[in-house]
Design a protein around this nucleic acid. Structure first.
Lengths: 187, 187
DNA sequence: GTCTATATGCAGATAGAC
DNA sequence: GTCTATCTGCATATAGAC
């Protein structure tokens, strides 16, 4: 069952992923989700920031789950990460290079303007890095190396998303996948 | 001599780097630059998109020059790239983690909404990657490996900027610098 | 829970005086 | 070249009926 509240949240994260925070209006969210217009402030009385916070958290946690599942399913370390980034670029490609990174744009836009949204973005990035770190340590890296590499991998992926979305091709992100495979198999 | 036109351009790229495209209003640009209000549409008759295009190009080319200079000045390959990223994080830090990457935010925001701005962002990223590629080839990498690594390095840097701005610390970008040093000295 | 109507403000852009 | 005034539209948010 999909409640009105859930439809609003799903539409919000999708639109914000594609357009960013400022460019996404509440009217557009209502319209696109086909939700009753009066419901938005009923479910999210604190307005756009509250709505965004919840949407970002939900989208971030969905990625976390997919990430954990994929990294655990593959025994080989390099292939585990390579495969995960391949999956991301698949998602990017099948959306016409519009979707890619539910946090990326919003995190940048709100870093210095909305403490509330910034907080949840920090939290999500930390969660992802922790998942990476744990998998790297399990794959044989020392605690220290794993922690540093986790941040680096996170950065490479986010940057790959920027380049792919700007160039309207999955190629940059696929190159990131290839380089990560090399990096993790040689070390 | 700083003309009115130049002041408007400089203020635009600075504000957009910190706040993004949508969040930066023309009124704010006028106000902050201390420019005569009537001048904006005199110098940039095609409006916000034209202004942004020129501001992004100017800022991107400034980075290109600094990049070329720094990469050429250091003989050791790993240190050349490491030092350049260190310099970026220095810039980020001294702006209170607000500035960092004149393209990053704007490139994401306008990727699917303004062909004109998107075009110049693509152009600038290509230019940077070409500079990286040439330096990597000069440092001993094959043509093919250099091209692929150049994109990867570009991605890691842009992603490091996202993480640093989100977390309000230079640390992530500094970690990128460290990992790049490792990557380029072992291969 | 959902509706309509609306308050309020700022956005980008334009016109015309000087 | 610069200024002021203004058009038009959409943004977030709120009030109150049903």
């Amino acid at each position: 069952m999909t409640t009105t509240r859930e439809k609003i949240l799903a539409t919000t994260s999708q639109l914000m992923e594609a357009q960013g925070y400022s460019a996404t209006g509440l009217n557009q969210i209502i319209e696109e989700s086909g939700s009753p217009k009066g419901s938005l402030y009923y479910y999210f009385p604190e307005g756009k920031e509250q709505l965004t916070e919840e949407a970002i958290r939900q989208a971030g946690e969905m990625i976390s789950e997919q990430m954990t599942a994929m990294l655990d399913a593959e025994e080989n370390l390099a292939e585990a990460f390579g495969g995960f980034v391949d999956a991301l670029s698949q998602r990017l490609l099948s959306s016409g290079c519009r979707l890619g990174g539910p946090l990326t744009t919003v995190a940048l836009e709100t870093a210095n303007t909305s403490p509330r949204v910034n907080q949840v973005c920090q939290e999500m990035y930390r969660t992802w890095q922790e998942i990476f770190r744990a998998r790297l340590e399990r794959g044989g890296f020392s605690a220290e190396r794993a922690a540093s590499l986790a941040v680096f991998i996170n950065a490479a992926i986010e940057g790959g998303i920027i380049l792919s979305r700007t160039r309207h091709t999955a190629e940059p992100l696929l190159q990131v996948a290839r380089e990560l495979r090399l990096l993790l198999s040689t070390e």
